[in-house]
Amino acid sequence: MTTSYAVLLRGINVGGRRKVPMAALREVLGGLGHDDVRTHLQSGNAVFRSAQGDERTLRAGIEAALLERFGFEVGCVVRDAAYLRAVVDACPFDADALEGRQLHVTYVSEPVDPERFAGLDAAAYLPDEFRLGDRAVYLYAPDGVGRSKLAVVLGRPALFPGSVATSRNWNTVVKLVELTHG
């Protein structure tokens, strides 16, 4: 039996550095034995079907293959279709009333530690808000993430020690659900 997954690559194709062409990403995933490989946008989103292992095993294999192919490390988050749907269903904000650029999800490879966020003065960043989920952080930024001071704070690696964390806007979050369920 195969399962649909999404792999989210962190920090590629930004400012002309760490280039990972999507055609090459599809080749890497196909070369690992995954089926029905498709990419979405140029920012490192791919979906595939696999009967191989769990999310951690898949992640390790993909990261190793990317290092071998491109010569640099690429952190990844792998999530199955059910998890991606659960993230959408658990959204603490009224996603239907917002523009896709106003809502973001940071997918985290390991469980989010609420203690890491305890000292964050959320009121200082209003009207931007965040909520913690299961291996996810939701960010509402009414003026967009590019103007959000809270987005900068939530992007600090110290909040996610030993984890890969990578963010996607709500449009991409929803599209990944469609691609893994379609």
Rank of each mutant, 00 (worst) to 15 (best):
T2L: 09
Y5G: 06
V7W: 08
V7H: 09
K19N: 15
V20S: 12
P21T: 14
A24F: 11
R26C: 08
V28R: 02
G31N: 01
D36N: 12
H40M: 10
H40C: 03
G44L: 03
F48D: 00
R49G: 07
A51N: 00
R56E: 13
L66V: 02
L67K: 11
F72V: 10
V78M: 03
V88M: 09
V88Q: 07
F93Q: 05
A97V: 07
E99C: 06
V105C: 05
V105D: 04
T106K: 15
T106Y: 13
P111W: 09
P114N: 10
E115N: 14
F117K: 06
L120I: 13
A124C: 08
R131F: 08
G133Y: 05
G133H: 05
D134S: 13
A136H: 13
L139Y: 09
Y140H: 15
A141V: 00
A141S: 11
D143L: 05
G144T: 02
G146N: 10
G146M: 06
R147G: 10
L150S: 03
G155D: 04
P157S: 14
S163M: 14
V164Q: 06
T166W: 07
V173D: 02
V173C: 06
K175G: 04
V177R: 12
E178C: 02
L179R: 05
